[in-house]
Amino acid sequence: MTTGEVVHAAVAAEAITPEEAHTGVDSPHCGAIVGFSGVVRDHDGGRGVTSLSYSAHPSAERVIREVAEEIASRHDGIRIWVAHRVGPLAIGDQALVAAVGAAHRGEAFRACSDLVDLVKERVPVWKEQFFSDGTVEWVGIGQ
């Protein structure tokens, strides 16, 4: 392979799983598959979190695809699967799932790290956090 391949890049209203990401990048070419799961946790900044809701700009699906294609162009021979959830999420739900398959682990780790960092930097998704004390806070992800 001379360039990477994006097998899936999406903004999803339904549940996403590390298993579907792993399966999506699996290939006889890949000797390593590295994954990332951004999971909703029950705290932030010392405060209890009860749930989250993600909202996305209409361009988010296009931007996540562009990000995945950019990473694929930087890392030869990789396969990419990435999705970010929108809508209400409970504690323990997957908010961001990514997987990268590559011939070797070093390339898979580097590409997956680059992918997650760039998704969080560029994809226009906003998080609304609901705290156990009844307060709500918006957090911007992307631009």
Rank of each mutant, 00 (worst) to 15 (best):
T17I: 13
K120G: 11
A83H: 10
H104E: 10
R85V: 11
A108L: 01
A21C: 03
V11E: 06
H104W: 06
K120P: 15
A13G: 14
S53A: 12
R105W: 00
G87Y: 12
T135N: 10
V39F: 13
I141L: 14
V125F: 08
H104F: 06
R65K: 10
D42Y: 00
D76W: 00
G24D: 07
A99S: 08
S132D: 15
H43T: 07
Q143S: 15
E20C: 01
A12W: 09
L52P: 13
G35I: 01
H43F: 09
H57W: 02
A83C: 06
V139I: 13
I80W: 00
V7A: 09
H43Q: 07
T17Y: 07
A32I: 08
A102Q: 02
F131Y: 15
G92H: 11
H29C: 04
T2S: 13
G106Y: 00
A99L: 04
F131R: 14
S113P: 01
A60C: 11
A10D: 13
V40S: 14
V63Y: 02
F130G: 01
A21T: 03
R85E: 11
H75W: 10
F131L: 15
A10L: 01
A99V: 05
Q94W: 02
A68R: 02
A32G: 14
L115T: 01
Q129A: 13
H8F: 15
M1V: 03
T3P: 02
T17A: 06
G87L: 07
G134H: 13
H22E: 12
G77R: 06
